[in-house]
């Protein structure tokens, strides 16, 4: 049980931080500009906001891939230690 949870810890942290911060931005927008929650969230995911936004999205995706890779590395290390 504990081992299973340990396995994907970096990816889990990544998704937690990513979604948490996005949610936070949406909530702050909602609070300040008196918009509905749906409005704020849809603003976050409007892809055509800025034709160059692709750069940052690509970087964030690279971060996700990196986190999966480092999870794999951790698991491998652990296995070699166990055996």
């Amino acid at each position: 049980m504990l081992k299973n949870r340990m396995i994907r810890v970096v990816t889990f942290t990544f998704t937690m931080i990513f979604s948490g911060l996005l949610l936070m931005i949406a909530l702050i927008d909602m609070f300040i500009w008196q918009q509905s929650f749906y409005q704020c969230v849809s603003k976050l995911f409007a892809l055509d906001e800025g034709a160059n936004e692709g750069y940052v999205i690509a970087t964030a995706a690279a971060g996700f891939i990196y986190s999966i890779a480092s999870d794999y590395r951790i698991r491998k290390k652990k296995r070699s230690q166990q055996s």
């Binding site: 996005l22 480092s70 951790i74």
Partner: peptide
Amino acid sequence: MNIPYRYLVFPVSMIIGYIAIQISA
């Protein structure tokens, strides 16, 4: 998370790069 922070440096900082843009229009 009980994990050395070096594993998290790159993923988390890449999120920061994204959030810095997304933070306001």
